[in-house]
């Protein structure tokens, strides 16, 4: 079964039945060291990436930050 979510304003289908934030970051190759992750309206901290489960229809935002300004 595939999982349909909204990732950064776009519909995405992930070929997995159960998905954590850590797995999503790996699948999408979001390997940057400085990220802000939000699932629906909740901010997910780095230490909770493994334990936070993404459900069908969830709105996930992954922001990648880099130095410069």
């Amino acid at each position: 079964m595939a999982l349909k979510i909204i990732l950064n304003n776009k519909e995405e289908t992930i070929e997995k039945e159960r998905l954590t934030v850590a797995e999503l970051l790996q699948i999408k190759n979001f390997i940057f060291k400085m990220l802000v992750v939000k699932v629906n309206e909740t901010l997910v901290k780095k230490q909770d990436y493994d334990s936070t489960v993404i459900l069908p229809g969830d709105k996930v935002t992954v922001l990648h930050l880099m130095s410069g300004g």
């Binding site: 060291k33 400085m34 990220l35 802000v36 939000k38 309206e41 901010l43 922001l63 930050l65 880099m66 130095s67 410069g68 300004g69």
Partner: peptide, 21 residues
């Protein structure tokens, strides 16, 4: 947000998301 360091950018974004969404 007009910081130079990525850590500071992350800090302000998380602060606003949490306390002034």
């Amino acid at each position: 947000e007009a910081f130079d360091k990525a850590e500071m950018k992350q800090m302000i974004i998380e602060t606003i998301m949490t306390d002034m969404p």
